[in-house]
Amino acid sequence: MEKAGQKRRPLTVMASSSSQVAAARGMGMTNPLAEWTDRVRSLEAGVRAWLAKQPTHVEAAVVTAVGAVQGAALGGLMGTLAPDGGAALPVPPPPPGTDPKVLASFKQAQALAGGPLVQARNFAVMTGANAGISCVMRRIRGVEDVQGSMAAAFGSGALFSIVSGMGTPNPVANAITTGVGFAVFQGGFFMISQKFSQPQSGDTYYSRGRSMLQKLGLQNYEKNFKKGLLTDQTLPLLTDSALRDVKIPPGPRLLILDHIKRDPELTKAN
């Protein structure tokens, strides 16, 4: 009897271990990267919801600071990876008595050839100004359009020209010229991106919802709206439970409901 009992024990252990492996595999079905991405998106949506409830100057200050940090990191990285100790474009000194226009071009090339700290400063000013002005224009106009995008590009280009030191001996004129160039480029890019992002004929029932999600930075949840048949006509009727049913996280739900409450066009949608 004892030998028989001893033979049965390994079977029990094997069954237990196999069940643990199966349970571990079942738990492994969840992708850690996808879970982490969802958490980051939920946190970002929560921050956006909090900023949407703040005064314009508070949101603009926060957005400007975040944009400046991102720009500084990008500029520092570009300056570090550039050859010759961060000088992406080795520029020889101009000869004495150089023409002012040539000197201005030299200053512009010199600004683009700075090391990591110089590039970090220039990009921080450019991206921070662009983000802050875009935020203010969106709050004032109530929509993110080509005019607001061009205004933000003009401001960021002008400040970039001033802080980088290029454009001497006439920095004001060069700042205006650089700002106009930035604005024209950004306006053209905005219009092209809008043209290619036009919805298909079968998606006309979700045009308002798509526009709302893009403004809030939640365009990844457009498929949730379509799966739940949350068309433009249902936007004024949306509730927390309805958004929960289509598996939208709490942060984005709060942001969507707050935006609908604040937007008179959505509340009057038929």
Rank of each mutant, 00 (worst) to 15 (best):
P100D: 03
K215L: 13
G167P: 05
G97K: 03
L51N: 05
S156G: 03
D245E: 10
A104E: 00
S105G: 07
M126H: 07
R9P: 02
G115D: 09
S211I: 04
G75S: 05
Q186H: 13
K7F: 06
K3A: 15
S17Y: 11
T168R: 14
F160C: 13
L230T: 10
Q108K: 01
N170S: 13
A242W: 02
P169N: 11
A120D: 01
S164C: 11
K7S: 12
A151L: 08
D84H: 15
G115I: 07
G187P: 13
T64C: 05
V143S: 06
P199T: 11
A52G: 02
V172Q: 11
A73V: 14
P116K: 10
V184K: 12
V118G: 05
E144N: 10
E59P: 00
V62T: 08
W36K: 13
A22Y: 14
G202K: 14
N130L: 10
K227E: 14
K53W: 01
R9A: 09
P169D: 13
A151W: 10
V136A: 10
H259A: 15
A73D: 00
V69M: 03
L112K: 03
T127A: 09
D99L: 02
Q194K: 15
V40S: 06
S156F: 01
D240V: 07
V172M: 14
G132S: 06
L229P: 00
N31M: 10
P55R: 09
D258I: 01
D232C: 07
G251Y: 11
K195V: 04
K53V: 04
Q198T: 10
Q200M: 09
N224T: 12
V184I: 15
G28K: 11
P100L: 03
M137R: 04
G5W: 12
I176M: 14
S241D: 14
V102S: 04
V62K: 03
I133R: 02
V118A: 12
A49V: 00
P94A: 09
W50K: 08
